[in-house]
Amino acid sequence: MTQRIEFKVGLFITITSFLIMASIGYVAYKKGMFSKVYTYTLSSHTGENLTEGMPVAVWGFTIGRVSSLELNDQGTVLIRIKIPERHIRMIRADSKFVLDKPLIGSPRILVKTTNLNGLPLSPLTIPELTESNDINEIIKRAQPIIDKADRIMANIEGITANLADPKGDVNRILRDAEALVARFSKRDSLLEMVVGDPESVKSIHESLKKLRDITARADGILQRVDGMAVKADGILQRVDGMAGKTDEELYGRDGVLPQFRNILRDLLAKLAKIDATFDNINKISTEAADSTKDLKALRNELDETIQTIRDLADEIERMIPFKTKPEIKLP
């Protein structure tokens, strides 16, 4: 019984220990713990920010570590770095070694190699370690922002002082606001509160009423202009029927048809303007004055159009006296 137990226990310990040792050994081997390690020496005028075990990195990958730091007789700090054989290709004679001090994270030594096929760095050569200081760079860049922040702070201080001063602007605004609220609670409407005079409000109300009338009339104009366009079509058909008339009268430079086309073009332009005016009417509550101006211009232009169309009708009547009087209703 005991022998059997001893055998099982022995077997278990052997197998498990072997598995563990093999795993750890494999990890150690892959991590390069058994590979040949090369030692290089760097020099620096200061040992600040340098620590034993600090990583040595190329393109963000750690390829080695600082193994020791030493101060020589000349007051130079000698930094010994250990690089495994498989990363030795990264260390060339022209490699630059930079102490990188990032804002976040620990400092590290960066190796900058431009030509990987260059001559290898001799272990006897002692390159100098230069310094890249992220913190100072950032401070330099941040200086204008800090200055601006200072000014903002001074302004805030001013505002705060103003706020605390009973005779200051803020307190005055608050008093005015109080008065305004008081007025608001007394007056009949917001508009009255804004203009401060009931007569003006009445006047504005009347203007708005008129504006509504103008809008209604403008709608009517639009309908009539539409009717006019229909009639103009009829005229065109009749003009076509006048093919028997002299060409000069019909198609000459001052003939009926060219004039008629001009009138139609004019009519289309007027219609476009009427559309724009109606857009303006929609915005009338905010741009009442402009819109009123547009309506006046429209009235003038429409009068001109009517006159032109009347002239055209007369011309046609004169040219075709035997025809019945065309029914052209004008606004």
Binding site: I5, E6, K8, F12
Partner: peptide, 13 residues
């Protein structure tokens, strides 16, 4: 040792 072996047997094996 014998106690250890027995204990180990009961605990692990």
């Amino acid at each position: 040792r014998m106690v250890f072996i027995h204990q180990f047997y009961f605990t692990s094996v």
